[in-house]
């Protein structure tokens, strides 16, 4: 799979440093994501992986460094801007809207695509109604793709964990993102659920050409599906390359075996 080559640079982060008080979550991390690839971010617990995604979608603002997305370089991102310019994500700890149905949760993913004002919505007539129906059509396609037709109307709080992860992916897909950020999409799943999720990730990448950056702890999965891998440890990048290159890297082996830092 790593033979397949990809397009231009879609996103690059340059010398990103982020600290919370005394805790240095990221120190001078740089890497890029090419159009159409599956890019994995791995590393031991607390390495700064989730923080990196939060920097990319504007939830954390780094003290140093810059982010270039689709050719524009910025010091920091803003969540609303990021979401409306084509980046969607899922979260390490499921962040669904518990009181809403599967359908409504996924519909929120299309929020930035809907424009009609409150008066039209109050009338539920004309443009607002057409907009609602049109977007509902997109959402139904996502529902079919993820094979979750039967839980369409179920409040997500009542769904089992694996299903919730799937709905969360659906919410991200509904936004038709160019770049999809997945934070441990397979964590806590059984083998069967993991296989399903892997298949969805690969299908999204192949069928829709969506670029994917994913954090994952399961090495087997990472080696199987990703084109390139970046490895973080204690907030620093320690390796970057194809799965095979990374696997052969001595620093990576040490980091995972917990060899003491000098």
């Amino acid at each position: 799979m790593s033979e397949r080559r990809n397009g231009e640079v879609l996103l690059s982060v340059d010398k990103i440093s982020l600290a919370f008080g005394g805790v240095r979550a990221l120190e001078g991390v740089s890497f890029d994501v090419l159009e159409g690839e599956i890019r994995a971010i791995i590393g031991p617990n607390g390495a700064g992986k989730s923080s990196m995604l939060n920097v990319i979608n504007g939830f954390y603002h780094p003290q140093e460094g810059s982010i270039t997305f689709k050719g524009k370089t910025r010091k920091q991102m803003r969540p609303h801007f990021v979401a409306s310019s084509g980046v969607a994500r899922t979260f390490q700890n499921i962040a669904l809207f518990k009181g809403m149905s599967t359908l409504d949760n996924i519909m929120t993913g299309r929020n930035t695509k809907m424009k009609r004002g409150i008066l039209w919505q109050a009338l539920h007539y004309g443009p607002a109604r057409n907009e609602e129906i049109e977007n509902r059509g997109h959402v139904e396609k996502v529902i079919d793709f993820l094979e979750i037709q039967s839980i369409r109307k179920t409040p997500v709080g009542r769904l089992p964990y694996g299903m919730q992860k799937r709905v969360e992916l659906g919410r991200a897909l509904a936004a038709e993102p160019e770049l999809l950020l997945l934070d441990e999409p397979m964590a806590g799943m059984n083998v069967e659920e993991k296989e399903d999720m892997c298949r969805f990730v690969l299908d999204v990448n192949e069928e829709f050409g969506t670029t994917i950056a994913l954090i994952e702890h399961d090495m087997g999965v990472v080696m199987d599906i990703s084109d390139r891998v970046v490895v973080l440890d204690y907030g620093k990048k320690i390796a970057d390359g194809t799965p095979d290159e990374v696997r052969a890297n001595q620093d990576v082996v040490d980091a995972y075996l917990g060899v003491a830092h000098d």
Partner: peptide, 18 residues
Amino acid sequence: RAWMAIRDMDIAAELIGI
């Protein structure tokens, strides 16, 4: 839906563009 999203989890809502 945006109201309910803010009610249920405001941070996630913000990160998906609400």
